[in-house]
Design a protein around this nucleic acid. Structure first.
Lengths: 224, 224
DNA sequence: ACCTTTCTTCACACTTTCTTAACACCCTTA
DNA sequence: TAAGGGTGTTAAGAAAGTGTGAAGAAAGGT
């Protein structure tokens, strides 16, 4: 049974989340502010954390940063609309995904599943996302067991997306990983390479979904 | 009877491996760290080596590199989870396969069989790719039963490509395998030798296909 | 020491890939 | 309906990577 920690100052929200997650078999812990949340995280070692960004005493970002100093636990951000900047910052500080309040329970549970699954399945020098398969050792990509020819940059890009399949990767993160040590703004070219990738794998493979203002997400199995 | 050398610092792991392998008729040698392992390898000339990546005094990668300077013995890597980078590096340094701890004995034995068959070319010391045949024992190559004269470097190069026929071999991998222990960038000369090989075998033998920015691939049977 | 073979380096033509730029297309908001 | 931000699409020049020939350097044999 998975343990989930809810960090949110609204009691109503905590109650709602508790109900939804308990019906899925999660064991729930709660915290009403940042310091308490960190304390609970350290004590109970939850398998996933749901973190509200709008906390009173300590900002959600701050909580996340402190948490990431010693823990890799998957974190799902709960945010309100029109907080793109904060969302991007949270993702770049190591959050795994976010849902926007108000959210549907189905979406919430789906995202929880994705971010928990991905932490444990990277042990091979290959990545498999639906019909797409990346062989990191040989730099080969294949779709439905048929080889697809990708340029080095395209391969690096799809690798970043596939490593985080189902989760959002911000444009900054992508650029930093695909063009390491680069100073110039590469986000112009990023769109072109995304375009090429979609032409090569988008037809019958996993979709590359844009999250406007934030980044991209490679559609993973189980979502539509 | 095959001889197997186990290089692992944990006595418990060595004992487990010894039991499993002895039941399969292997003759077992053990070493608790890297330097001892290299010593044993040189002395007993094992037919296969099981190498733990997390060694105390000398890293598993380092052991592998030193070993590959003078030996082609099949090496099976024993690694723990979440060491993807190291695993890839190990494979690129000439390891043959890996198993992730904890592993099942069936899986371990299956992989051992595979890598020994692939590399244990003393009983069948030849590689055949289409109309090309490499005699590893006499360092001779032939095309349609007609002998082709290759220089030592050319032979080493086509051997690397032929061992992975049909798959991409990165330039790094090629350089490391053909010019072991070399520091200078040999990728200039690589192009020249590829050129020579194409002239000698390319006419009626398997094609050497370039994957721009990545490496080369020897066309294998069944592809066009 | 000589000759032969093999390897490396260099130059330049050619191919593939990357980057830049321009413009069209949403979607949201006023 | 118009405006603006962000994104999708296309094309062309720039950059990087590769093919090829030849010549000098290194290695090996006689």
């Amino acid at each position: 049974m998975s343990k989930a920690l809810i960090i949110d100052d609204e009691q109503q929200m905590r109650r709602l989340l508790r109900m939804v997650l308990e019906s899925r078999g999660y064991e729930i812990y709660e915290a009403a502010d940042g310091p308490l949340g960190l304390q609970e995280a350290a004590f109970h070692r939850p398998d996933v954390i749901l973190l509200d960004l709008g906390l009173p005493s300590m900002s959600g970002i701050e909580v996340l940063k402190r948490l990431r100093e010693w823990s890799d636990v998957p974190v799902l951000i709960l945010s309100v609309r029109d907080q793109e900047n904060v969302k991007v910052e949270a993702l770049e500080c190591g959050a795994d995904d976010y849902v926007t309040k108000p959210f549907g329970t189905a979406e919430l549970l789906a995202r929880l599943t994705v971010i928990q699954r991905r932490r444990f399945t990277r042990q091979n020098p290959e990545i498999i996302v639906g019909k797409l398969r990346l062989d990191l050792l040989h730099h080969e990509a294949s779709l439905n067991a048929e080889q697809v020819k990708l340029t080095p940059t395209e391969f690096a890009l799809i690798k970043v997306l596939a490593e985080h399949a189902g989760r959002i990767v911000t444009q900054n993160q992508i650029v930093r990983l695909v063009w390491p040590g680069q100073q110039t703004d590469q986000s112009e070219g990023l769109r072109v390479h995304i375009n090429h990738l979609r032409k090569k794998i988008g037809a019958s493979g996993p979709q590359i979904i844009n999250e406007p203002g934030i980044g991209y997400r490679l559609e993973s199995e189980g979502e539509g």
